[in-house]
Amino acid sequence: MNTNNIDKQNSHLDLQDQSVQDIFALYQNYAEVPYLSEKRDMEGWLNAVQIGSEQLVPKRNMIRFEEDILPGHLILLWRIQFGTFTNESGYPKYFEYNYGINGPQALHELIGKGYAVELSATASLDHLNAASLKAILKHYEVAGYSKMKKPELMELATQELSEEQLSAQFELRGYRITPEGEAILSKYPEVVDRHPKKKY
């Protein structure tokens, strides 16, 4: 059985389960087995592969770079650089089924390696709508916001409220790619070049 790097993404699996064993057999010649979510219908997925309605993760997507990250990590990093990714963003199915990674875990690893950072509440104000900004200002009895538009509301909130006050009012946080993250994307441009593009 291919147990290469199993501790990195698949330590939660029961290797005695027949469906898990059957999936691992499909990836026997891979550098490592792709991430398999506990929520996945293993048996149903295996049947879908047999009839051709599901595909295996491409072999190249399970080869780690020297930085100990997979191509899927780079796609997540590329997604973050658009400036719209937050801690409330969903992870498209392709992260697991096309890139073989656990999205939330990959984000944690990218931050740990210094390729991305979670923004402060103050720096995340842009992700709130005008109504939410006004509600925060009202809560702290800041005056003069009623006719303001979002950019002005953000400026007022930044001027009048501390990071501690803002963080107590909302949990939404954005993420930003770091210079080190930009460098790693530039180092492996072929990964993003192959990824289907759409606007974010």
Score class of each variant (00 low, 15 high):
Gly114Val: 09
Gly103His: 04
Lys93Ile: 12
Gln105Gly: 12
Ala130Asn: 09
Leu128His: 02
Leu128Pro: 04
Leu70Pro: 04
Asn98Leu: 07
Glu109Met: 13
Leu137Glu: 00
Gly83Ala: 08
Leu133Lys: 00
Ile101Asn: 02
Leu110Gly: 00
Tyr91Ser: 15
His108Leu: 12
Phe95Ser: 06
Ile69Tyr: 03
Pro71Asn: 08
Ile80Leu: 13
Tyr94Gly: 03
Ala123Val: 05
Ala130Glu: 05
Val117Gly: 02
Ile80Asp: 03
Leu77Cys: 08
His139Asn: 02
His108Ile: 15
Pro104Lys: 03
Asn87Ala: 06
Tyr91Pro: 05
Thr122Asn: 06
Lys93Gly: 14
Leu119Asn: 10
Lys134Leu: 03
Glu118Gly: 09
Pro92Leu: 10
Glu96Asp: 08
Ala135Trp: 09
Leu77Ala: 13
Tyr97Met: 07
Thr86His: 14
Tyr97Thr: 10
Glu67Gln: 15
Thr84Pro: 01
Leu77Arg: 11
Tyr94Gln: 11
Leu76Phe: 05
His127Tyr: 09
Lys138Tyr: 00
Asp68Tyr: 15
Pro92Ser: 07
Glu88Tyr: 14
Leu74Cys: 14
Leu119Ser: 01
Pro71Trp: 04
Arg79Leu: 10
Thr84Met: 08
Ala121Trp: 05
Asp126Pro: 04
Ser89His: 14
Leu119Glu: 15
Phe85Ser: 07
Asp126Lys: 13
Phe95Lys: 04
Gln105Met: 13
Tyr115Thr: 05
Gly112Phe: 06
Tyr115Glu: 07
Gln81Ala: 06
Leu137Ser: 02
Phe65Tyr: 15
Thr122His: 04
Gln81Leu: 04
Glu96Phe: 02
Thr84Phe: 07
Thr84Trp: 05
Gly90Val: 14
Ser124Ile: 06
His108Met: 14
Arg64Ser: 13
Arg64Asn: 11
Glu96Ile: 10
Asp126Gln: 11
Lys138Cys: 00
Pro92Gln: 03
Ser124Pro: 06
Ile69Cys: 12
Asn129Ser: 09
Asn87Cys: 11
Ala123Gly: 04
Gly103Ala: 15
Ile80Ser: 12
Ala106Ile: 06
Tyr97Pro: 00
Ile111Ser: 04
Glu109Ile: 15
Ala131Lys: 12
Pro71Val: 08
Ala123Pro: 03
Leu70Cys: 05
Tyr91Asp: 12
Gly90Pro: 07
Ser89Glu: 11
Ala135Tyr: 02
Leu70Glu: 04
Asn102Arg: 12
Leu107Ile: 07
Gly112Pro: 08
Gln81Asp: 08
Gly100Leu: 11
Leu107Glu: 01
Asn98Phe: 13
Gln81Pro: 02
Leu137Ile: 00
Ile101Ser: 01
Gly112Cys: 14
Gln105Cys: 05
Lys138Gly: 03
Leu107Lys: 08
Tyr94Thr: 02
Gln105Arg: 13
Gly72Thr: 09
His139Ala: 01
Leu76Cys: 09
Thr86Ile: 05
Arg64Gln: 13
Ala121Ile: 03
Leu137Gly: 00
Ser89Val: 10
Ala130Tyr: 03
Ala130Lys: 07
Leu74Ser: 10
Ser124Thr: 04
Lys134Ser: 03
Leu76Pro: 14
Ala123Tyr: 03
His127Leu: 10
Ala130Leu: 01
Pro104Leu: 01
Thr122Trp: 05
